[in-house]
Write a protein that binds this DNA or RNA. Structure first.
Lengths: 156, 156
DNA sequence: ATTGAAAGAGCTACCGC
DNA sequence: GCGGTAGCTCTTTCAAT
C-alpha cells in the first residue's frame, strides 16, 4: 500500500476481485479465489498489485455515525470571502476532524464539505471554526436521513 | 453482522477499537489487542459486539473511482416535479448502480445524490434515467477534485 | 467481561511451471 | 502470471476466573 504506480487497465478478474473487496473488505484470499476461479497465490498477487497501483487505496470499517454520537450530518458549501487571496481552503481545513470529505466543485460555491457533529450546537461551533480557519462564507444543507451510502459502482 | 440491537454507550476501549478499524479495516485481532491493551479474545468479543449492535456495519475496500473508469463524479440534487404524488424517490433510484449515496436534506432540494460515471456523456444519460425513474428535476454540481474523503470522526 | 490454550483456517514466501 | 507446498500468524472456540 505505498503509492499509486503504473496503471494498465483492469481485466475481468481484477474487477471481480475489486467488487468483492468493496462488498466485503475482510474477504479472505480463499473466498476471493473461489469466486474468481483462481488459486490463492494468484489472487494474492493480484490484490497486492491492485493495492500498489492505487486501485484499492485501503480498507475501512463502515460505521454508523449516530452510534458513535454524531447525531447530525450536513453538507457545507464554502466560498472564499476574498477572491484575490491564494485559495488553500482544503489545506487550512484538513485538521478539523468533523470534516469527512472535501471536494472542489464547479457551481455556485468553491468547495463542498461533508461534516458530522454531535448536535446543532456543535454544528454552530464547527461552522465558526471553518469560517475563521479558511476565511470563507458557509452555506449549510442539513441531512435529514441517509437512505444509502458507500455503494460503489465498478463499470463493465 | 445481523441487525442493530441494544446500544449502551461505547466505552473508551470500544472507541479505540472503532478508530483503529476505521483506519485499517483489515486490522487483525492481535493488532487491535496490542493497541487496546487487552487479550485477543477480549478484543474479539468486543468487535463482535460492535458489529451486532450496528456500530460497525461492515467492512469495505476504499477504491479510487478514476482507476476503475469512473472519471467524473457529481452531486445531483433532486426535487419531485409533482408534490401531490407520494415521494418514494430513493426507492425508485436504488437500482441505479452509479448512485453511491442518497440523502434527504433540508434545503432547496429534497434529496442529494453522489454519483460516479465514466464521462460527461454518461452523466447526461444517468440524469435522464434519474428524472424518468423518480419523476424529479435535477440540479448537478460537478466535482472537480476530491481533496479527501472517507475520514471518520469518533468523538471524545 | 477477561484470560489462556488448543485446533483449525488464513497468510506469506518460495519454487517450479 | 499461475499453481502448490511449508512455515508461520491469525482466528475461533472453550474452560476457567
Amino acid at each position: 500500500m505505498t503509492g499509486p504506480e503504473e496503471c494498465p487497465p483492469l481485466d475481468d478478474i481484477d474487477r471481480v476481485l475489486v467488487r468483492e473487496l468493496v462488498a466485503d473488505g475482510r474477504a479472505t484470499l480463499a473466498q476471493l479465489a473461489a469466486t474468481a476461479g483462481l488459486s490463492v497465490s494468484a489472487v494474492q498477487s493480484r490484490v497486492r498489485r491492485l493495492e500498489s497501483r492505487g486501485v484499492v487505496t485501503g480498507y475501512t470499517a463502515r460505521i454508523n455515525p449516530e452510534s458513535v454520537g454524531n447525531m447530525l450530518s450536513a453538507f457545507v458549501a464554502i466560498t472564499p470571502l476574498d477572491p484575490s487571496q491564494p485559495d488553500d481552503a482544503p489545506a487550512r481545513l484538513e485538521h478539523i476532524p468533523e470534516i469527512e470529505s472535501c471536494y472542489s466543485v464547479a457551481g455556485e460555491d468553491s468547495y463542498v464539505l461533508l461534516v458530522h457533529v454531535a448536535s446543532a450546537r456543535a454544528l454552530e461551533g464547527l461552522l465558526q471554526r471553518i469560517r475563521t480557519a479558511a476565511d470563507v462564507k458557509t452555506r449549510s444543507t442539513i441531512i435529514l436521513h441517509k437512505f444509502y451510502s458507500d455503494r460503489r459502482y465498478i463499470p463493465e
